[in-house]
Design a protein around this nucleic acid. Structure first.
Lengths: 205, 205, 205, 205
DNA sequence: ACTAACGGGACTTCCCGTTCCT
DNA sequence: AGGAACGGGAAGTCCCGTTAGT
């Protein structure tokens, strides 16, 4: 559960320990409610170490996005850019992985992007722009893949790629909201299965 | 923007002024970050008045849900229960209204249910159960309407009503998350249009 | 445990209900920590009724002393003034009663005079003078009785009546302090038995 | 009257300044009514310093007991354990010192143990146990010394050591209650003189 | 005689960020 | 590079007393 305590006098490890602990705390209670004290306790370092690596709480949060969340998030849909991949299969495969992951970890705290958007987008422009970039990346990756599929004949012609991508990402994020209220993974899985059904309708008739 | 200041010695008006101001503050910054001081200033009442009507902040928040959010939310889908209504038309009509509303108010702070779920569901069981009740109400209303439509021949037989209802609600909530990050109504509208497209696929071929 | 709720529109009963409830609350948590809200709930009346009968919290507290504590306290040692009574026997009898009472009610909250002195004597002159009057009444009653006993030959001549009275009253009050820390009646009973031993030494040899 | 303001960046001095100021405030108004703001003003430190040294008000109060009151209190009767000391002389000597001290400082706020017991014993188990430990220490030290004196022939055989110790401690604490109500040291001195008289009766005839 | 809305303040808790020091 | 002392502020809770009404 908790991040590795940093060995003494290893700046990089210290930095990573702080980042990891910050990510966990933020996932658990959100950024605004995240307590630096808790993060430090989790990371096994003191305040001096933190303020050596990060000027303030905001910078720490942005670093969590840049160095932990963004790499993970942008990797998810990279496969869609591959010309030889069937977009529908890729999307359905992605959703199936989500179901498997939810079964494994219970989907405890939901999607970090979704959580941070709700917490910070309205009150901090720096956070908002970074999160928007991730969401737009998802939407564009999907929209591009759908358009390519339409050209390649693997995706039904009639659909509006832009709108469909928006709906897919929205449903994916919204599933986190439903799961958070239900506080179980069953609801999340139902949504994901619905997304698979939806994916099937994308195939040409 | 702010609620009407209550006339002197009108308990119901005072209570409503507090509730309204609390709703606005909660929509703006979330429940946890909501400041009672701000709420009081907005409502034009003093701490004594608030303490008289609500024992603490939590009770105020729950009252906002029970007396403002729940009535609004549960009314939204009541029309779906009407046997003579075409479910697909009703859903699409509902989404069109959303688009119109977003155009009118800019969709500033998003859906209260979505906001509160993210803020409170994980840390307060009383909030969670009330919000879950609303979400489940939506899902059941839609699922029931879809099943009825399948019996009545207005909805395609092949779809799984339960899963589709989950996806629709998830996409609706998720659209708020996307809009919050984009901080404009264009993204929200695109999602809603995607939902209309999706609605069209529910009709029998 | 709690005072009788007042019948509607019976001023005297209401007043008594408030006084009784106030006495109980004061015994439980002290005067300063006593909550008017709790007292009112206990008495089954509202704030308006209280402020009709008493101008403020202090007046209520003083009324509790004047109308409940003082009559009880001043009655305790009245018997010592009786010329035909053996002072030593009377004192020992009084202590025996205390032991019996402690066995009955567990000596839950101790002597009201002792409690109020600690709580209020240093910060409110009106309280202090009333409580001092009670304590001095005890000391004088005992000192007078001892002197009379010395004249009548029922009390040893050598003792200083004034000092002995002070010690007896102090030990009686101090027993409450010991009992409060021990939170059981055993300690109190041990003190009382010690007082009986002490009483025996008052007899002429 | 007030504690020394701490030099900058001297943690031990800061901690002691806070403890000392807390002790004074607690003696003046009791623990529950003690205001952290007042304590800070008296100590000349800020809230951050206090929060750094003590997690909350309770911990501060317990530290005052552990580090200021307990050492003082447990030292008082240490001499009684000395086999070569006459218990009666030691007790009388102790009381005489009390009289001298009262004459010096006017016995303004009484015995800290007595004050805290009344204030906290009934509502906080941690306080109660610490205070009980002090009181029991006194009683046991006296009872042991009396028993030893009985063996050594310096104390009358007939008395019950346990009960007598309880009475002596009770009278000592009770004297504080009487003094608090009288708000002068005369009453306290009278009690102490009575205790000396009582001490004399402990000698073998 | 009694009710209930209301005014306004004080208190503890808790936190983020700075700064001295090793 | 990191550890610990410290500065200063804001929030929620709770309370006592007042006053408009019945």
């Amino acid at each position: 559960m908790s991040a590795q305590p940093a060995p003494r006098r290893d700046p990089d490890a210290t930095r990573l320990a702080i980042l990891g602990a910050a990510f966990e705390e933020i996932q658990a209670v959100g950024f605004r409610a995240a307590s630096l004290e808790h993060i430090l306790a989790r990371a096994g370092v003191t305040k001096g170490a933190l303020y050596h690596h990060f000027p303030n709480k905001q910078a720490l949060g942005l670093a969590v996005i840049d160095e932990l969340i963004w790499p993970e998030a942008s990797g998810s849909f990279a496969i869609l850019a591959d010309e030889s991949v069937n977009p529908v299969e890729a999307l359905i495969g992605f959703v199936r992985e989500e179901i498997a992951e939810a079964a494994a970890d219970g989907h405890l705290h939901g999607c970090p992007v979704c959580n941070l958007v709700q917490d910070m987008a309205a009150i901090d422009e720096e956070f908002r722009l970074r999160l928007l970039r991730i969401q737009n990346g998802w939407r564009e990756a999907i929209a591009n893949a759908l358009r390519r599929g339409q050209r390649q004949g693997t995706v039904r012609k009639g659909i509006d790629a832009e709108r469909m991508a928006a709906v897919l990402v929205a449903a994916y994020e919204g599933a986190n909201v439903l799961a958070k209220a239900a506080q179980d993974d069953k609801t999340y899985v139902t949504c994901m299965q619905g997304l698979i059904d939806l994916g099937e309708t994308l195939r040409p008739r």
